[in-house]
């Protein structure tokens, strides 16, 4: 008797990615560069977040043919993004067999009330979160993996730092609270009680949590690992840098050895220019992606 699509195999898949780097790639050549650099997975999307910002308009799921070409080109797992709440895009990605679906605020949300009910899918989902309430709501909907939202496409790490610190600070708070306080905490977090109780008992999230949004250098990756991230997503940071192959490899090394600073110094030398980046305070509210789908 074999069973597919279980919670254990979906969450377990994410556990196997720990300590690794997942890279956004826009074509087969980039996917091969990522695999060669030691990425644990690639995220196939037509435009990386900074290009989505530049292009404007509605950002949607990528062309299935483009995603399949990347699935054929590499042996590591391939992820792809669906719009928040877009059950048809999510089902299409499941049908072509992507290994993970990112229900992502980087794309234009399809539904501003509801996320996808991810429990019903055989393919695991990753979702973004800025705080513990958001994290537990996404897990309640069936997310098998979490990531910070950061502020995608900015090359600015400050939002990812805030989200990671916030979640971990709130976990500490829930763990330290008395059992009789948990229902009120669940109310304040707007999170399911049973998951709040689980965090209280375990002192950690029931799924792993990667850093995403704004990682642009090996030092950024090491920073996030030291703040407690289980691994790193790099979006625009690699293929908008001057030397993507070298940058990719350096970020993989920094993520695997986040406290070996002489090694990180070594791989950070002469990398060329990182992506240019955006100061988040110059973005208007409607340009901010992290506030989508909370």
């Amino acid at each position: 008797m074999t069973e597919t699509g279980t919670t254990l195999v979906k969450r377990g898949m994410a556990q196997m990615q720990k300590g690794g780097v997942i890279m956004d790639v826009a074509n087969v050549e980039q996917a091969k560069v990522a695999e060669e650099a030691g990425a644990v997975a690639v995220m196939a999307l037509e435009r990386v977040p900074s290009d989505i910002r530049a292009a404007g308009g509605v950002a949607r799921m990528s062309d299935p043919a483009m995603i399949e070409s990347i699935m054929d080109a590499v042996t590591i797992p391939v992820m792809a993004k669906a719009r928040i709440g877009h059950i048809a895009e999510a089902r299409i990605l499941e049908a072509i067999g992507v290994d993970y679906i990112d229900e992502s605020e980087v794309l234009t949300p399809a539904d501003d009330n509801y996320h996808v009910n991810k429990n019903e899918y055989k393919v695991p989902f990753v979702c973004g979160c800025r705080n513990l309430g958001e994290a537990l709501r996404r897990i309640g909907e069936g997310a098998s993996m979490l990531r910070t939202k950061g502020e995608p496409g900015t090359g600015n790490i400050i939002e990812a730092v805030r989200h990671m610190e916030k979640v971990n600070e709130q976990i500490g708070h829930v763990q330290a609270a008395g059992v009789d306080q948990l229902m009120s905490i669940a109310r304040d977090l707007r999170a399911p009680y049973d998951l709040v109780k689980q965090v209280h008992d375990d002192g950690k999230l029931p799924v792993i949590n990667f850093a995403a949004g704004g990682v642009a250098t090996p030092a950024d990756a090491a920073l996030m690992m030291n703040l407690g991230a289980d691994g790193i997503f790099v979006g625009s940071g690699i293929f908008h840098s001057e030397n993507p192959a070298k940058f990719a490899k350096a970020i993989v090394t920094a993520t695997a050895h986040p406290t070996d600073y002489s090694l990180i110094a070594e791989v950070s030398k002469n990398l060329g220019a990182p992506m240019k980046g955006i100061d988040i305070s110059t973005l208007s509210d409607d340009q901010k992606m992290a506030d989508r789908g909370i």
Partner: peptide, 12 residues
């Protein structure tokens, strides 16, 4: 990846 992609991952 002898059993296929993640969709085919299983418990038994």
């Amino acid at each position: 990846n002898g059993f296929g992609r993640q969709r085919e991952s299983f418990e038994a």
